Amino acid sequence: MSIDRNRLRKRVKRTMRPALDIVTYGVVMLLGALVRMLSREQTRRLACFIGDFIHRGIGLRRDMVYRNLSLTFPEKSSEEIGRIATAMYRNVASTLLEVLRLPLIRNRGDAASLVDIKGDDAFWEWQRSGKTGAVMVSAHYGNWELMATAFGLLICPVTIIVKRLHNERVDRKMNDYRTMRGNRVVYPKQSIREGLRLLQNGGTLAILGDQSDPDEANFGEFLGRRTTMFHGAAFFALRAKVPLFVPICTSNGDGRYTITLTHIDTSDLSFNKTDIAILAARYTSAIEAQIRRRPEEWFWLHDRWKRGCD
């Protein structure tokens, strides 16, 4: 009987999914039309409302978020953990609304009015050299979608490796937003061939390398706990012999953002499995350091330790 119920649930889910996808797409489009009519301050207030509703009302993954925050920061009180969680949910909502406002960023001036870029000496030297190819590895931190659009307008276009969304309509619209100002996207299955070709031709490849690897190809520590590790950015940088930078987008608290770029040294490394792991550990360490400094801006809603955790 239980097997029959399970089959029935799966059949109902498959039957309803197309309709649910259409409804979801319609809601996203309506929300996008709304936020593009609002001022930035009104959008920020709406993001706080939505974030608090997801946190306190729906409770989306709330237990997991609080557990992972407590395990990562055992020295923090329950009140501090609660404040971080509240700010995180609001930041996630803000990032979503900012994605829907991307069509309002039409040129370099619009991007510069929202984002400041601060790079180390190695980054500006690379930028002045004429951009001979580079890998940018970042995290689901701050406003990562706005960062890609602003970077493409203010520095150079980038090709972003993106995960395909289950909702095809939303996936297409998201990629429309991501590419409307000159950036490109590529899905993981095509990324090795297209990514290497891009880098060899002097292009810039962008990767978010902070989530769990479903293939479980490599393991290591992230924020002090064992889990899977993505080595893709290290593979590309060492195989193509191009520099690797970690860009991080942080909120200034006033509706503006700062992108900080840090060069990760590869001068002592070559293209082999051991050195790929060493480089992955180096840029992971840079991402971890930022998360520890301002944990409220990282995407704790992802179950980062679901594979290989204690």
Results as ranks from 00 to 15, higher is better:
Ile3His: 12
Lys10Ala: 14
Val12Met: 14
Lys13Arg: 14
Thr15Asn: 02
Ala19Cys: 08
Gly26Val: 06
Leu30Tyr: 10
Leu30Glu: 10
Leu38Pro: 00
Gln42Tyr: 04
Phe49Met: 13
Gly57Phe: 09
Arg61Asp: 11
Arg61Trp: 11
Met64Asn: 12
Val65Met: 12
Tyr66Lys: 13
Arg67His: 15
Leu69Thr: 03
Pro74Tyr: 08
Ser78Lys: 13
Arg83Trp: 08
Ala85Asn: 06
Thr86Glu: 15
Thr86Arg: 13
Ala87Tyr: 06
Leu96Ser: 02
Arg101Asn: 11
Ile105Lys: 05
Ile105Ser: 00
Ala111Tyr: 05
Asp120Pro: 03
Trp124Tyr: 13
Thr132Pro: 00
Val135Met: 10
Leu153Ala: 09
Leu154His: 01
Ile155Asn: 07
Val158Arg: 04
Ile161Thr: 03
Arg164Trp: 08
His166Phe: 03
Asn167Ile: 02
Glu168Gly: 05
Met174Val: 12
Met180Asn: 05
Tyr187Lys: 08
Pro188Cys: 02
Lys189Gly: 00
Gln190Val: 07
Gly202Thr: 01
Gly203Cys: 08
Thr204Tyr: 00
Leu205Cys: 09
Thr228Ala: 06
Met229His: 07
Pro247Thr: 11
Pro247Leu: 14
Ile248Val: 14
Thr250Ile: 11
Thr250His: 10
Gly253Ile: 06
Gly253Ser: 08
Gly253Asp: 13
Thr262Gly: 07
Thr266Asp: 01
Ser267Glu: 12
Asp268Thr: 05
Ser270Lys: 12
Ser270Asn: 13
Ile278Lys: 15
Arg282Val: 00
Tyr283Phe: 10
Ala286Gly: 04
Glu288Ile: 05
Ala289Pro: 02
Ala289Ile: 05
Glu297Phe: 01
Glu297Lys: 01
Cys309Asp: 11
